[in-house]
Amino acid sequence: MSFIAILSIFVLACFVGYYVVWSVTPALHTPLMAVTNAISSVIIVGGLIAAAAAEVPGAKWLGLLAIVLASVNIFGGFAVTARMLAMYRKKDRAPDAGGRS
């Protein structure tokens, strides 16, 4: 891809990011940080490319190490986000809300 094409995607994605993030409710700002953490670990793609190319051992090991670090983040980030989001619930949705009072 040409540099300009890549730059175009980047600039447009910045605008998308701007509007999407402003629409995130402040109550979910912590999950937002956790999930952005997880998705920024898409940098694992670079690690996978380096690890798959065996002809330069140094680069391969750096790639494998990058995969380990990024995987901690991917699994940890999505799992902790899921754990947090599961806690948010609405009023009167709890099973015992109606009957007891």
Binding site: I6, F10, A13, C14, G17, Y18, L32, T36, I39, S40
Partner: peptide
């Protein structure tokens, strides 16, 4: 690139 821009903006 898309992810980087999203996270950077966020």
């Amino acid at each position: 690139i898309i992810t980087g821009a999203l996270v950077g903006a966020s």
